[in-house]
């Protein structure tokens, strides 16, 4: 029988690693497409985002462990990731057309 605490801990670890990664991915995609929309060179935008991305990931990673509500953590990480990826895809489509 897995204890309640073990499940909670596993939830936090998964949220910190995978949720944090998904959010970082979405943010980078959004950042790059938004900057390209503003006329910035693609590789410049990509490089700029990689310099920011892992600091954001680090912040999210620690926040996941410090936060009181795991529901809020998952809503922000997964919801943010999905929303930002969607907007990034839409921006890409409009840039290519």
């Amino acid at each position: 029988m897995i204890s309640h605490t073990a499940l909670q801990t596993t939830n936090r670890v998964i949220a910190a690693i995978f949720g944090g990664y998904a959010f970082t991915w979405g943010l980078s995609a959004l950042g790059i497409t938004a900057m390209v929309t503003l006329g910035i060179d693609f590789h410049e935008a990509e490089t700029g985002m990689t310099l920011v991305a892992f600091l954001v990931f680090l912040g999210l990673f620690l926040w996941t462990f410090a936060s009181a509500s795991m529901l809020r953590v998952w809503l922000i990480l997964a919801g943010g990731a999905a929303l930002m990826s969607l907007i990034a895809s839409m921006l890409q489509t409009s840039l290519l057309s």
Binding site: I32, V36, E46, M49, S89
Partner: peptide
């Protein structure tokens, strides 16, 4: 850009190729 966040090979490949 090559391993951890390979956006230009996946999700943003079309934009990257156009660039």
């Amino acid at each position: 850009s090559n391993v951890y966040l390979p956006l230009s090979y996946t999700m943003l490949k079309s934009l990257h190729d156009q660039h």
